[in-house]
Amino acid sequence: MLAGWILRRQFHIASGLWSTQPSSVLATLRKKTGYTFANCKKALEVNNNDVVKAEAWLKEQAQSMGWTKATKLQGRQTTQGLIGVLSKNNIAAMVELNCETDFVARNEHFQTMVDTVANACLQKASEQNVAGNLVQLHLDADDLKSLKLSDGKTLADHLALMIGTVGENASLRRALIYKSNDTLHLSSYAHPSGVAKNETQLGKFGGLVALTKTPTPEATEDLGKKLCQHIVGMHPNKLGTENDEPAKDVDDEKCLIYQEYLLDDSLLVGEVLKENGVEIVEFKRFECGEEPANSQALDSVETCQ
């Protein structure tokens, strides 16, 4: 009988606590924030059931815990991750975000962060004037951390929050942004293809290409994507000119125009460009975890005439 009395009393106390927070208010807060029952309940308790104040309190607590977690984990190696590519109109960005394990690279929060970084880079480029045909922005880790988003927080703040959520160290590695005028077309590609977060394509490899246009936009888009696929697959290290000597062994060729075209090995890339009446102005390939041969810092800005 004593045990039954204790259970009834505990149920009565719990019911009393619950009554201070209407289920509709608690449910609303949980739906808006995605935080746990216990966290939302605590937020409402300290904010007198004010949903708006409780939501702000939860975000402040999460950010604080995220920075604490990020500080504790910052020495751990981040050799995995994703490349994200995003192109809109006359701007294209390719970014690299690293983490400790491939498991986290497949996590929804991590992939959302890649998308956030790519969009922040597009916003950065929108503020840049184009002198000549093409402007390139090279951003390193510190440059990326300082980029501000529309909510007033930096990418470093968003990264810390993501680290607190996934429980694993992560780092902003690098980004390359192209911004062109109307004479060029920008194409982007991530491999393996088919994985995306919103409009950002995700993969272990990425490619950007800036090329002159064909008479039809559809043909230009198709050719640009195929050239990106070739660059990701064949890893050329320079565009090349007619003054360059082709490699004796075609498998060793690193000059783009002398490489066998990935989608039709009966043609060289240079021949494909001539057939379509286009020129490649710039290209770049990223591989997740690689050591960049020539790392350039921002507001390292290059202008192509």
Rank of each mutant, 00 (worst) to 15 (best):
L267C: 09
F103L: 06
L17G: 10
K238S: 07
K59P: 07
N198T: 06
G4S: 09
E168D: 10
I163S: 00
E260Q: 01
K238N: 06
V209I: 05
A56W: 01
W18P: 02
L263E: 09
A190W: 13
L58Y: 06
N237P: 15
G164V: 00
L139A: 13
L2H: 10
Q201W: 14
C304W: 11
D251F: 10
E45Q: 15
S87D: 07
H12R: 12
N47M: 01
V250Y: 05
P236F: 14
V269C: 06
G167S: 12
S180T: 11
I280H: 11
I231A: 08
T68P: 02
E199H: 06
A70S: 03
T183D: 15
L147A: 04
I6F: 07
A38W: 08
N47C: 01
W57E: 07
A293T: 12
E108M: 08
S180R: 11
T216Q: 05
L26I: 11
G233C: 01
Q259A: 08
R76D: 06
K41L: 12
A293D: 08
L208P: 01
L26H: 09
V130N: 08
N48M: 02
A196M: 10
E218R: 09
V25F: 08
L267N: 05
M94F: 01
L159E: 01
D264S: 09
K204V: 14
A93H: 13
L139C: 12
D249Y: 13
E96L: 05
R106K: 02
A105L: 03
T33R: 08
E108Y: 09
S266K: 10
T112K: 08
A14L: 01
E127G: 05
V95D: 13
S24D: 12
E168F: 09
E279C: 03
D151T: 06
K59T: 03
A141E: 08
K213F: 13
F37I: 10
K42R: 08
E302V: 09
L155S: 11
A14K: 02
N169I: 02
N276E: 00
T28F: 09
L227P: 13
V52T: 01
I177R: 07
T112Y: 08
G167I: 04
S19L: 14
L223S: 14
D265I: 15
K72F: 02
T241H: 13
K88Q: 04
T28S: 12
A62Y: 00
K59G: 09
H158F: 03
L256S: 11
W67L: 00
L239N: 11
G207R: 15
T303K: 07
Q111C: 02
K153R: 12
M234C: 15
D299S: 11
M65Q: 05
S193P: 09
A62M: 02
I280Q: 13
E279N: 03
A120W: 10
T212A: 04
Q74K: 02
S193T: 12
T71H: 03
T79D: 15
M1W: 05
N48D: 00
S300K: 15
D222K: 13
G270W: 06
K213Y: 10
C255D: 00
V51N: 03
